[in-house]
């Protein structure tokens, strides 16, 4: 399971996360909700190993491994996948090539042989068609000239090919129309598995209608203020985040 203890994170000398404690058992889907600037994206990026943040204190363990001691790519090999809020464009680098390089690096690290090109293409084609991506999409540069919706779909496509054990979806629903949202949600739901944990970082509960979480956490001002089941998401939608602040402040 993912176990985060007393995590304090700062960037540019300012504390953003102020003591996160969180446990996500294998096989569960957790949603992390919170207002803008609460630290949701920071948490997602710190788990994935982004170096722009300073971990001041605390630990992040994934199935016993100390993630904070690993580089970003080592974490990827350990099964961590981040679906980016703003997927990056890399001109001239073929979409499929990126995936193949990533997958094979992981296999090498695990002492497995690399996938041969034929098997790999078969895998890629199958996953692409399931997520409704055209073939020519695969040969284009990574996110190069993609629309917002295409970029998000590409993230989910990459996730289904790389088969992570810990998937973190950072605001994956933002900028998606309802049809695209449905396709993305189906992709994620197919990945639900007793051996896999999924973390959804989101501002709205809309996505949670399609991917129903086991647990919902509320992150405000760098700390988890409240946790509950899926009904908490609806409550937040109706009553806003100030209600949580008042509740917790009063406690």
């Amino acid at each position: 399971m993912l176990k985060i203890e007393n995590l304090h994170v700062a960037a540019d000398g300012k504390e953003i996360l102020s003591g996160i404690d969180l446990e996500i058992p294998l096989g569960e889907v957790h949603a992390i909700m919170g207002p803008n600037g609460s630290g949701k994206s920071t948490l997602a990026n710190v788990i994935a190993g982004r170096e722009d943040y300073t971990v001041v204190e605390g630990s992040v363990r994934w199935r016993g491994d100390d993630l904070l001691a690993m580089t970003a790519e080592e974490r990827a090999w350990a099964g961590v996948f981040l679906a980016f809020q703003y997927p990056i464009e890399i001109p001239g680098v073929n979409n499929v090539y990126l995936l193949k390089a990533g997958l094979n690096a992981k296999r090498r690290a695990q002492g497995l042989t690399e996938l041969d090109a034929m098997d790999f293409m078969a895998l890629v084609r199958e996953q692409a068609s399931r997520i409704g991506l055209e073939e020519d999409f695969l040969a284009r540069g990574v996110n190069e000239g993609f629309s917002g919706g295409e970029k998000k779909r590409n993230e989910i496509f990459q996730m289904t090919v790389l088969e992570p054990s810990l998937a973190i979806l950072d605001e994956t629903d933002s900028g998606l129309d309802i049809d695209a949202l449905r396709v993305v949600a189906e992709g994620v739901n197919r990945l639900r598995d007793p051996e896999r944990s999924i973390v959804m970082v989101t501002h709205y509960q809309r996505l949670l209608d399609h991917i129903v979480p086991d647990v919902v956490h509320v992150l405000i001002d760098g700390r988890i203020r409240m946790s509950g089941d899926k009904t908490l998401a609806h409550e937040l939608e109706e009553r806003g985040y100030d209600w949580v602040k008042a509740e917790v402040g009063g406690a």
Partner: peptide, 15 residues
Amino acid sequence: GEDQLFYCRQRGIPE
């Protein structure tokens, strides 16, 4: 871009 590098590394590709 640092962003490009991080993206690739997150996908498992060494620096």
